[in-house]
Design a protein around this nucleic acid. Structure first.
Lengths: 361, 361
DNA sequence: AATTATTTGTGCGTATGTATC
DNA sequence: AGATACATACGCACAAATAAT
């Protein structure tokens, strides 16, 4: 036996694997016969067979009895598992069904299945998801970042994805450290800008804002709010902005706001992070004995199912959820096919006028 | 060579596989040596090796050089891919997010991922899904039958699932030919019975019904409707029942109903297949110049987000969507662990009183 | 600590069966 | 029909790891 290069069949297996992936041999090509290879490598036919059988089991070649061995398709378009992972923050949250539906309409058409995972919007949940996905057979990942404004300490997981040549892209939010990666985003700044501008144009003077502090969308919407104020030459007052964390969504912001309402603080309008928040704010306003939109105007964001409460329709921003999912899926498919993609797709928001804002000048 | 029993190594492989999964051999046990097996089966050592190598590649046994071959853990807790498929009719439909959320809360806790697929409520879509899933590495399937009342012509696919030892269960509906399989169902008959009984008790005399004809839920709800009438000694009139197919959800039933409303047919109340239908029926009633509940009472089913329209709250049935998902997932986990499960879990419905029905005696 | 028997791993030779071209 | 190529099967030899002595 050959002692210097280890196992003979192993060496042959590696050599053949390289040839299969080289430019010389193509999908469908016929390999030399077992006897020819045996002669070429100067080993017995059995040793050649051992190497070939391993390659066959891996799916790179297939044998046709009486004819020969051929290079399979899969060797070229390698390991098409047909699975694409979709990692979201919440599954039961109000926009997810449409986004999934959009992603699915494109992917199932292309013959892919969706592996659905969620992070509970926690960093540890996202790490767990990614680690789990690294052990699975997947062709790509669509990720909605969790707590996207907090420091990214799991970049190594994304590095490993790239090492394994698994394409991924972000939707909805972005990590500071991953700005150069592919993102499909709403122009959240522009959305909040449009809402605030609308309030200013309809004569509101004391416009409060309530934003989520632990994701990039909250930051962006806040920026749009501030830009609209500054463009209109209005003072940006930090005391008019309330920040909240995902965790205390149920407690802090509303009591604090309610107190302000009760204390007859000068408030014209409230720009809310999203429709869900707007509903709570409206409730707080009504509990304080005031009414919407007569006393205080309220805007939402997302045009979700929350945007209609009884006969009150929120002035809000349409979130083209289904379209976002479609674009994300189409982009990922291109990445899988190694085609060039736009690293940053921005979806323009559109203002939806309801009756939750006072419209007199 | 042996011509009667096919390939020798294949026969030995099968025989050993059965022994490995039998009660006699356990995880960690040492297999007889190659020479001993060769003697026992009266074949050469090479033939034994061929069989053993196949089993090793499948992960049922592992070899320790110089020591022997042993039965691996995975042979017992076999092939934990960690993936469970969830096949639904529609993804964007109104109840699924909650069902998925319920399934996921149990499965992700147990370390499983969800592969999400949908059939568009078509038989061909379901066949495509199942065929695709048969090529994938999955540990179990939760299926919502599509067009569940139509003839089942793809039972062979379910047979193959059993052949591959992939457990599966049905939620929401059932196939006639699969009655003995595991089902997690709402008691749809009871739900419609409760609604109809409520209408009867509140003095309604001419109660129409509108049901979906192409799934088992429609049949069941219709049965509950009929049972309530017959128990109350009221006449069951086929002309008071409108059947529709999924495809013509948008056209037929409402125009037909609207005509009846316009023609001043004696109609007291309409028992609707679900909330979505109820919304359309209410619209048809209003278009005919009548009002709900003053002229005609309407009931829904599912207590979905459609159940509140402006200040009208539908009298409907709560569909414990999240709980259904949880029970389905828990049951499937038991099936994966080969534990005994109740082959038919019926979730009792609960009546939700709204203001869409007249309540005078 | 060294020896030995056992067991798996590697490799070759040969023969025969059977599908393809 | 014959040549070629893969498939199955047996026998043998030696290497390398393990476990018991």
């Amino acid at each position: 036996m050959d002692h210097s290069t280890g196992k003979k069949y192993h060496h042959i297996e590696e050599d053949l694997r390289n040839l299969i992936f080289s430019e010389e041999w193509h999908s469908g090509d016929k390999l030399p016969s077992e006897n020819e290879l045996a002669a070429r490598y100067e080993v017995s036919r059995q040793t050649i067979r051992k190497a070939l059988e391993a390659l066959e089991h891996e799916g790179y070649i297939y044998a046709v009895h009486g004819s020969g061995r051929y290079i399979s398709e899969r060797a070229i378009h390698r390991k098409a598992s047909g699975n694409i992972a979709v990692v979201l923050t919440y599954l039961s949250d109000y926009i997810f069904p449409k986004v999934i539906s959009g992603i699915d309409s494109v992917l199932s058409e292309a013959g892919y299945s969706i592996i659905l995972k969620h992070t509970n919007n926690s960093r540890s949940g996202e790490i767990k998801c990614l680690e789990d996905l690294l052990t699975k057979d997947i062709d790509g990942i669509i990720i909605e970042p969790s707590k996207s404004n907090m420091y990214l300490n799991h970049k190594n997981l994304f590095d490993r994805l790239e090492e394994y040549d698994i394409p991924y892209l972000f939707i909805q939010g972005h990590y500071e450290a991953m700005q150069d990666k592919v993102h499909i985003l709403m122009d959240d700044e522009q959305g909040a800008y449009l809402l605030t501008k609308h309030l200013i144009e309809t004569g509101h003077k004391h416009i409060f804002g309530i934003f989520k502090s632990d994701d990039s969308q909250g930051q962006d919407r806040h920026r749009g709010y501030a830009r609209a104020l500054s463009e209109a030459g209005m003072l940006y007052d930090p005391n008019q902005v309330i920040w909240y964390f995902t965790e205390d969504r149920k407690v802090h912001p509303y009591t604090s706001l309610k107190n302000k309402f009760m204390q007859k603080t000068a408030i014209d309008a409230v720009v809310c992070y999203n429709d869900q928040i707007a509903v709570h704010v409206i409730r707080a306003i009504e509990e304080a004995g005031l009414s919407v939109p007569e006393d205080i105007s309220v805007t939402g964001y997302d045009n979700s199912r929350y945007s209609t409460i009884a006969d009150l329709r929120l002035t809000t921003i349409v979130h083209p959820q289904e379209r976002l999912g479609e674009i994300a899926a189409e982009t990922l498919l291109k990445m899988i096919r190694k085609e060039e993609v736009d690293p940053r797709v921005i979806i323009e928001p559109e203002l939806i006028l309801g009756n939750s804002c006072r419209t007199r000048e």
